[in-house]
Nucleic acid binder design. Structure first.
Lengths: 167, 167
DNA sequence: TATAACTTTCAAAAATATTTGAAAGTTTGA
DNA sequence: TCAAACTTTCAAATATTTTTGAAAGTTATA
């Protein structure tokens, strides 16, 4: 396989994986492209490489920066903006985990707390509902605590975690 | 909040959460509905409750059964099929994690292995590409091993994991 | 401060994913 | 064997998400 072929395959695969996990395909592709780019990349170059419009590139770069996994870089004497991806994978995973916790898991926990707190527990159906949603709240809450715990280590947390699990 | 209201809110929220994680909204809603149903539920009842077509119900129930998180149940003297959800949350999380590993992570790892194995490492760009994709393979591979490790405990693995992390 | 070089916005268009519903398929039991 | 009671399939319709591109906005510097 040639370099350009491999690069393209990687970008496509990362994009598809993103889709499967609820991340816009183009967003994942831009991220993939930046991850394997040795130098900061201009919007123009991203548009060219991925064959996407200016608007699309702009919006998805903004989203990636909101996630905190892509940064702007300014070059001496250059008017244009350049972009680089967070390349430290522990940091990348931490940012993604934290962000998904904040945006998706915590709001879901709030709903679980609310619905499991209904007083209307006369029927067998309602009793079961309360029991299940309480269990679910507990479980999701534990998983979320785990994310907090794990992401505060910062450095090499995945490796550390595996070590712990072995013991 | 009334029971029926709470139930509906839970189903909607679980559906939305599913969407955000790349799972068909209706599939997640059916799963939510079954999770909090005290008794096995017929396809007719699912269609009625979620206001969906027969085809939609049939296809998504099949998908849930393929994931191994919903089962068919036969009732004495009843021609119809009834459905129940896996209600043990450790088991549920294990099944989902294993399935996503098999369907999505392992194929992505294969691609990472392929693209990081290119020989064409003359340029700085190619060298960087190889280095990054190797690191990524390593990281994703470790995360995947972690899933294997964690899901083989079966019972109460999340709680155990938290204990380990504390120490 | 005017203009060129750039980025962002957003309504409309396009692409993608989901849903429908009717026909085909299957199973049970009279 | 037949027909009733059920489930599955899939092409077409619908809904949702993503993408485009041109206009508006911004910023640097002549």
């Amino acid at each position: 396989m040639k370099f350009s072929e491999a690069k393209n395959k990687f970008v496509q695969t990362w994009g598809a994986l993103g889709s499967q996990w609820g991340i816009n395909k183009t967003m994942a592709q831009i991220h993939a492209f930046l991850m394997v780019s040795a130098e900061p990349v201009s919007m123009e170059e991203i548009m060219e490489e991925l064959q996407i419009s200016r608007g699309n590139a702009s919006m998805n770069l903004r989203a990636l920066m909101d996630w905190g996994i892509v940064y702007k870089e300014f070059k001496q004497g250059e008017r244009r903006e350049f972009f680089i991806a967070e390349k430290d994978l522990d940091e990348l995973a931490t940012k993604i985990a934290r962000e998904r916790s904040k945006r998706e898991i915590k709001p879901a926990l709030k709903v679980l707390r609310e619905v499991s707190a209904i007083q209307d527990d006369k029927t067998k159906e309602a009793k079961h509902f309360i029991e299940q949603t309480k269990k679910l709240h507990d479980f999701v809450s534990k998983a979320d605590q785990m994310i907090d715990k794990v992401t505060e280590y910062k450095d090499n947390w995945l490796a550390r975690m595996i070590m712990k699990m072995m013991g």
